[in-house]
Amino acid sequence: MIELRNVTKVFNPGTPNENVALRHMNLQVNEGDFVTVIGSNGSGKTTLFNLIGGTFMPTMGQVFAHGENVTREPEYKRSRYIGRIFQDPLLGTAGTMSLEHNMMLSAYKGMKSLKKNLNAKRRSYFRERLSELEMGLEDRLKDNVGLLSGGQRQALTLLMMVLSRPELILLDEHTAALDPQNADKVLHLTTKFVEEYKLTTVMITHNMHQALKYGNRLIMLDAGEIILNVDGKEKQQLTVNKLVNRFKKIRHQEIDDDELLLS
């Protein structure tokens, strides 16, 4: 589905602030995979997503999608088969527009036409889909999205992403900014949609329990490198303790990110 070949990303090359965010990374995500990504701050998780999503180009190496080289394809074109959700619930929707207009935007990917596709039939379809979220949003089609809570907004973003039928979804700690109750709800919806639409998923999380609980593969990043890449049975048998020990064995040091351990 998506493949990184020997990808390196250097920020501010040739300046005193030079920073190698990703180092000779190889990663293949197959159709139907659900990969969880963990790693401490600055380990390159978000850079990895930006390279897959096309926000910027790698310094070296190539990105392939469906076997085609898409390294130089701009972000908006790659968005036609990649769905992405950010940690900030405000980034996925337009706050000063109504729910129905937001949903209309994601009804299909790509440049919009002069057709007016928002009609009664479409509205009842939107209402139906919104009721799946069980948040009472189905009665608020005409309300501005800015009036919703963070949890509601992130759930809406999730639903909108599913409506646009992406092949691969990138979740960048999409529940980290929510309170525990809403975070659970959004995660639950995520797994429901992933199964329903058989979406290939890569999910960044700061929470080791989450990383172990969800998905069929787990990768761990540190200093721009994949230091652990497990799948299948091996992943099922992992525990938080085993993860911490494996990190120690590989890196000969303790994990220094408290958040990663405490969560």
Binding site: Y76, S79, G83, K109, K112, S164
Partner: peptide
């Protein structure tokens, strides 16, 4: 958001 919907 608009970029994410595949629009230039």
């Amino acid at each position: 958001m608009v970029i994410n919907q595949g629009v230039n």
